[in-house]
Design a protein around this nucleic acid. Structure first.
Length: 299
DNA sequence: GATACGTGGGC
DNA sequence: TGCCCAAGTAT
């Protein structure tokens, strides 16, 4: 027979003390961090490991300690300082979000989830995370870590489905402590558990505070049965081509001739299509004389 | 809802 | 050695 799902209170009493003892000391969690710092961290952490975010976040905070400071800089500076974090459009959107905060919200990062959600690059997850972590609000934060912990501990499956379901959001909401401050800690605690212990590849169940109540463990840790997860192709893709072009511009102080930009990719049609797309998206700015640069930089 | 979107490290 | 994965968003 199937093991009973652990009650919310039981999960709270196991996970919250674990988090108090094992949480990482991350700069965007310190008492002196600002809501802006939290927002920047959340966008940087989208699909990106903590270890790679740390130095870039520190640099951004020193350059642009407030939304207005970033808004007053060129978008291309944001892309340049993004470095090799990946998905550089996030830098562009963070810059656009800073402009929106400066122009529409008095330079103050909004605390309401619904308002945060209107900022460029801020989706359901990031809006909830900023409301919870920067402002202590009782928000339902569902990221890939939370989904995996819930899938195992509560639902009893090895991995969550490819896409977020309504049932998962309802489960996460049902598990949220009533108290605002406690709810905010619960959110980050479950994420931390997923990041450090209940990992995707090789979960460290021996160190898990939920091992005795985990539905997946109690069912014998059955293997993932759903469709195999599709890896992302890389060699020869537009993404690889775009990555090379943006990297060249990022590493160049001066505007780059179109010939030099096109030289990073052998196939004409694909290369031209990628460059056009980068320009259309605002990641690359065309200048007179067949030159290109990151957007908005003085030259 | 499926797909595009970067990058590098770990197993 | 590759394959898988990392605090998602926008279209």
């Amino acid at each position: 027979m199937r093991p009973a799902r652990p009650a919310a209170g039981v999960l709270h009493d196991l996970v919250l003390p674990w988090y108090a003892a094992h949480q990482r000391d991350l700069p965007w969690r310190r008492p002196d961090r600002s809501p802006w710092g939290v927002l920047v961290s959340e966008v940087m952490l989208q699909q990106t490991p903590v270890s790679r975010v740390l130095p870039v976040w520190q640099r951004w905070m020193s350059l642009w300690p407030t939304p207005s400071a970033l808004a007053d800089a060129a978008a291309g500076e944001a892309v340049r300082e993004w470095g090799r974090l990946g998905y550089p459009r996030r830098a562009l959107r963070l810059h656009a979000a800073a402009v929106a905060v400066r122009d529409d919200h008095g330079g103050v990062v909004p605390a309401e989830e619904a308002v945060l959600r209107t900022l460029p690059g801020v989706g359901d997850y990031t809006a909830a995370a900023v409301a919870a972590f920067a402002f202590g609000r009782r928000a339902t934060v569902v990221d890939t870590n939370v989904r995996r912990v819930h899938a195992r501990a509560v639902t009893g499956t090895a991995l969550p489905a490819p896409s977020l379901s309504r049932a998962e959001v309802e489960l996460a909401t049902a598990l949220l402590p009533e108290d605002d401050a406690r709810a905010a800690v619960w959110n980050v605690a479950v994420m931390e558990l997923g990041a450090l212990v209940c990992t995707a590849r090789a979960p460290r169940c021996g160190d898990c505070p939920l091992a005795t109540v985990c539905a997946w463990r109690l069912a014998g840790s059955p293997a993932h049965d759903g469709p195999p997860r599709r890896g992302q192709a890389w060699q020869g893709t537009d993404r690889q081509c775009r990555g090379r072009m943006v990297q060249l511009l990022r590493d160049s102080t001066e505007p780059v001739p179109g010939d030099a930009l096109r030289a990073v990719w052998p196939e004409e049609a694909q290369r031209d299509r990628c460059l056009d797309a980068l320009v259309a998206e605002g990641l690359v700015e065309p200048l007179d004389g067949g030159l290109f640069r990151l957007p908005g930089l003085a030259s």
